[in-house]
Each structure stands twice: as C-alpha cells, then as structure tokens.
Nucleic acid binder design. Structure first.
Lengths: 344, 344
DNA sequence: GCCTGATTTGGTAGCGCTACCATCATCATC
DNA sequence: GATGATGATGGTAGCGCTACCAAATCAGGC
C-alpha cells in the first residue's frame, strides 16, 4: 500500500512552523506566539521551541506571515532620486535603523514625478506595508488620499510643514535659503545671485528664502535668479554660473541651490580667474564632505539627512508599537557652516 | 435570522481574485491565468476579465502570489554601500530596468562585510527571490554556497572573473588600474604614487594593475603606495596625499583609487600651490561628472555603472524566462578619459 | 461514428502562517 | 465549594493565490 502523501511539499522542503511544533511537542500556534510574543509563552516551552528552531534551521516565511496577518513587515520608502546623495543618505539612515528588526525596505523612485509617485503608492499599498516614508510634503491630492488610507503610519521627510498627513521629519528649506542669503549679505556681498537646477518644491522654497532675505535688504532683482528644471550636476552648475555672469556681470555672490552647483561655480571661478571670496562669495546647500576640503573651502548649509532617516524610522516604529509621538512634526534644523568662500 | 457570514474579511475588504471571477462570470483560476499567461485564455474571456479588473480596481496581492507559487517577484540586490555613488548608479540601473515589470527590489547593504553578506543572503533566501544580484566576486565560501543553492538566477556585478556562481557583468579592475598607470607613464610621469582608501577587493585589483604597470616600466617602489582601510572621502584623499608627499617628496603623479580621492588630491594641490599637471599628474577612477568640470579637469577611468545594472537585470530576466545567455561572463569594459590633469 | 490530441476552462487542495475562539488549568474571592 | 478572573495552550478556519489534475470542447483523421 502506497503512502498517502509522498511528502512532496511544493515549497522546496524547507522546515515550516509545523515541523518546529512537532519537534518541540507543542501546537503550531504556540510556536508562532513564541516568535512574536515571547512573553505570552511559558519559559519552558519557549526553550524547547528555540531548540527546535535552531536544530531545524527554521526561518519564518515572510510571505505567509504577510498573507495571514494582512500586514507585511515592509517599510515603503519613496524618494525622488536614487543617485542624489541627499536621498542616498536618508535611505542609509532608514536602512541602518531597520537592519536589526524584521522589517524590509521597499524602495520606490519617483523621478520627481507626482504621477509616478501616485503609481508607486498604489503598488506599495497593495502590499499593506507596516509604514510608509515619503520624501517631500507636496503630494498630489490623489497621493495624499492614498497615504491617508494606507492604514499604516506615514512619515513625510526632508521638510517641515503645517499639515502632515500623519507625521513629518525635516527642516525648513525656506529658512535655510534665508539663512544662507543673510550670511552673504552680512559678509558684505550685495549683487547676490541665486543659481538652482531641478527646481523641485524644496528648491523653490530655498529660492523663496533667498528672495525674502534679498527683499528685506532691498537688494532683490529678478535678473539675479538663474534656474533650470534640468537635473542638477556639477557641470550644470558651471554652465548656469556662466549664464548668470553673462546676464549680470556685476554679480558678487551666489547662493547655490545645492553643493553640486556650488562646486561647478567654484571650478568656473578658478578657470576664469575670478577670486573667491574676494570677487565672488559662494554658499552651497547640504554641506557634503567635499565642501570643507575644496579650495577655497565652501560655506554651506549643513542638513541632517542621515538623522532624518533615523528619526523617521523611530517615529514610525513608535506608532506601530501603539505610542504615536506627541509631536507629529519634528524639525531637525540645519546649520550654517562658514568657510573660506564667504570670508571676505 | 442573521447572515451566516457578515462579510468581515480580515484583509480589509479589498477585491480579490474571486470577486473578479464572479463579476466576469468565470472561474478564479481563469482570472489568474489571464493575468499571468494571457495567451492561454480566449480573447473573449480575457476582455471580460480585464473589464472586471478595471471596474473593481483589483490589484493582485504579491504576498498571496508568493506563497502559492513558492516564488516571490523580488530581485534581491546586495551592495556594500548605499551612499557610494558607484553603487547608487548600479542600483538605479537595476531599478530602471525593473520598473516596468512586476518585480520589486529588496536592497541589502553589506557594509563591505562578508559576515553581513552571509546574514543577508540567508534572510533573502527565505523569501525565494526571483533573482539575486550581488556586488563583487569575492564571496565567502558560505555565501557562495548560499548563492549556489538559492534556486534562482544569480548575477555577480562590478567585476569579471573566471569562476562565476552563475552569471557575471562587470569589467576588469586590474586592467583599469594598469591602463590608468600606463597612461601616466606614457605622459612622462615617473614617480607615480597609488593612493587608495577602503581597500576592498576591487581596489586591491586596481592596485595590482598599478603595480604591474610600474614594475613593467621598472618604476615600482613600495613607498609609492599609500592606502588605508578607512571609508573613502574627499577629505581622506587630501590627507592621504599629504602623507604620500611627506613619505616621498619627489612624487610627480598619482593614480587615485577613486574620484573622491582624486578630488581631494586636486584641492590639496591648489592649497599647496602644486601645479597640475606640470608638477603632479592626477588620474581618478570611475569618472564622475565633476571630473570633467574640475579645474584642471581630471583624467579618469570611465566605468559603466548604470549599464552594469541594466545588463545584470537583462541577463537575470532572460534566465528566468528560460533562455540563459550563452556568455555567462559579460565584460563591459571601461574607458580612459584623458583630460588636463595629465596633459603635460 | 469513434478515437486522438490539442486547446480551453474549472475544481480542489494546498502554500505557511496567524486571527479568533475554545479549552483547561490555576488561583483568588466570596 | 461555587464563581469568576487570569494565563497558558491548542484547534479551526481562513488569508488570496496558484499547482495540479480533471473535464469539457473542438478539429481532424480514419
């Protein structure tokens, strides 16, 4: 008589929770509990179960878990760019904070497109993630709606604003732009340009900060502003600076939308023998490592990218654990790093 | 009399494949087939099913799918760093190639640690991914074993070598190092240093290429080599260059392990009024955008990072579809970009 | 008309896990 | 000693989907 079930598990024969339960002499559900809520299982059984797990080399199947509990141990992370170092550091912060626990990261690249963001939120939602972390606060109404109905903690990162979907961690780009510009003004520069590429909402707010500072000092002139929607790069920084100079030869300072642009400006100054900081003052944004090494070293606004990632995860984990933080909007601030490029 | 089943689906009430089947008046399995193998379903039913899907806004549950088919639509991607631009571009290539299809990306950061790589492969394996893409070819025996038994296509990227686990896409770092060094020699430099940080296996091979070229020209001297295991940065490039100069004041050229180091060297040359390329020639590695903008522009080895990501996915997808490429090792090469920093 | 094989469709039985309840001790309380 | 209250454990019934097989249909050949 043949065996009824020829042990042909479809799934490749890895040990399951039932195998562990059999070996430990307990019910499957007790194994499940021992894994998820160890406190609710007696110490004796827990030890037996752990021994069985070790012996069999059991690893829980995240897919089965997600299906049964209608909740995947996944953090959905949406950023507008994978190669922009700013977001890479945010992602690194998220990753480092999550690598101890059971949570995986599902990365989405919106390419600075609201439509793509909507599409990704749709896809991510179908997985019932444990939390969503999205860059920016300017979601489309559709995206906002998707976030609101995601049924999980949501953290908007990089910026602060008055109206969080759920939680927020970031800083004020407007204040950052204003601080950078005020610093140039205080240093004695007057014909201060703004140079920016890829004018996403954060860049727009830095520009607004620049404008506020310039207007307050009675120095604003629209011809001082040079922008392009093209993706930022060092090469582009150089080109935009040449455009700006051509348009406004009396330029004596520039606030650059980001450090790439600032570096391009610096190199062009070298090339054209424009003295920095004497003839032109330069301020960057983000304060990448290279800013302090550049010659002359470049003043920049230090932004807490890595810390934003870490804090976003901490808030999301707290919310998952049931104690949503009191402060739903966390401003991590920024810091002006004064260097040679503005030391006139 | 109360309803028997108060329609309290645990899973939040999103439409399921059964809902679609009911609406379209077909069996559930036919809907499943229409989604995965449209060719095997008559055109009429297919149309009905598509209409039902649209109307209900049905999105397949990837977790249920993975559980039932014992195969997740996930590409596991293992890189040693999230912020190193080189890997960010590889990941971008992978992401762009995958964003059309159903596959998700599961990212792992090994932090240049073999042990961490083993741990991640273990975790990734428990999800039965559709494919694995790992950076480097120097896996530990344990990791190699895990890859071999992963039961899915595996692509090792960034390098080429004689013994792929399954497939490989990359280029020869040894040849890259040699080419860079030979270029300096041909340009007339003689006391050519090697400066490298974070001496991972790829850096080691570039160093080996440097050494081969130097020895062949009868120029090698161990005091010309300055390395550190510390993570690479522009700041570090500057410091290492100062060390190298202190050790060997007659240095007249440097091959830098990567572009960050090269940039640090360039800035230090500015700062110390060392003329480039007259007194010192500089060659970088990777050819980031900024190399061509720097003043003077910096000679570098252009590496096909993005293309490596794309090709790795293409090969993996082909293998999944059943037609594993003939060539299991693809060498995408590199290119020396001659610029001002070596134009003596 | 019958058979064969290809094509299209559906039913059943899981995949591995957890939510929900039921059960059974144990112990304090009246 | 009956009555809950509490805590530990287990059974059952799915989660939403697909593998596997069975059945139905149809074309063509004899």
């Amino acid at each position: 008589m043949a065996l009824l079930k020829p042990r042909s598990r479809r799934g490749g024969g890895r040990p399951t929770i039932a195998d562990v339960a059999r070996k430990a002499g307990v019910g499957a559900i007790t194994v499940s509990r021992a894994l998820r809520e160890p406190g609710r299982v007696s110490e004796e059984l827990r030890r037996q179960i752990e021994a069985a797990i070790d012996e069999l080399g059991y690893v829980p199947d995240p897919n089965a878990r997600a299906l049964a509990s209608a909740r995947a141990e996944v953090f959905g992370v949406l950023v507008p760019s994978l190669t922009n170092n700013v977001f890479a550091e945010v992602v690194r912060g998220i990753y480092d904070s999550l690598s101890d626990g059971p949570f995986r990261i599902q990365l989405g690249n919106t390419h600075y497109s609201g439509l793509e963001e909507e599409r990704l939120l749709q896809v991510f939602g179908s997985q019932r993630p444990a939390a969503l972390i999205v860059a920016g606060i300017d979601q489309t109404p559709t995206s906002r709606n998707l976030l609101q109905n995601a049924g999980c903690p949501v953290v908007q990162v990089m910026e602060t604003g008055p109206d969080p979907v759920d939680m927020m961690v970031g800083f004020s780009h407007l204040d950052g732009g204003r601080t950078a510009t005020e610093h140039l003004i205080e240093a004695g520069y007057r014909r201060i340009g703004f140079i920016g590429a890829r004018m996403d909402p954060r860049s727009q707010r830095r520009l607004a900060g620049y404008r506020a500072a310039m207007e307050k000092a009675g120095l604003f002139d629209p011809r001082l502003v040079t922008t392009t929607p093209v993706l930022s790069s060092v090469t582009l920084g150089r080109e935009l600076f040449r455009d700006a100079l051509a348009k406004m030869p009396t330029l004596d300072g520039v606030f650059c939308n980001n450090d790439d642009i600032a570096l391009g400006v610096l190199f062009e100054c070298h090339r054209a023998s424009i003295e920095v900081p004497k003839t032109i003052g330069i301020v960057g944004f983000n304060d990448f490592d290279m800013m302090q090494v550049a010659f002359p070293s470049i003043t920049s606004i230090r932004t807490p990218r890595y810390e934003i990632g870490r804090r976003a995860v901490a808030m999301a984990l707290a919310a998952i654990a049931g104690n949503r933080p009191q402060e739903r909007v966390v401003d991590l601030g920024f810091e002006l790093r004064r260097r040679e490029s503005t030391a006139r």
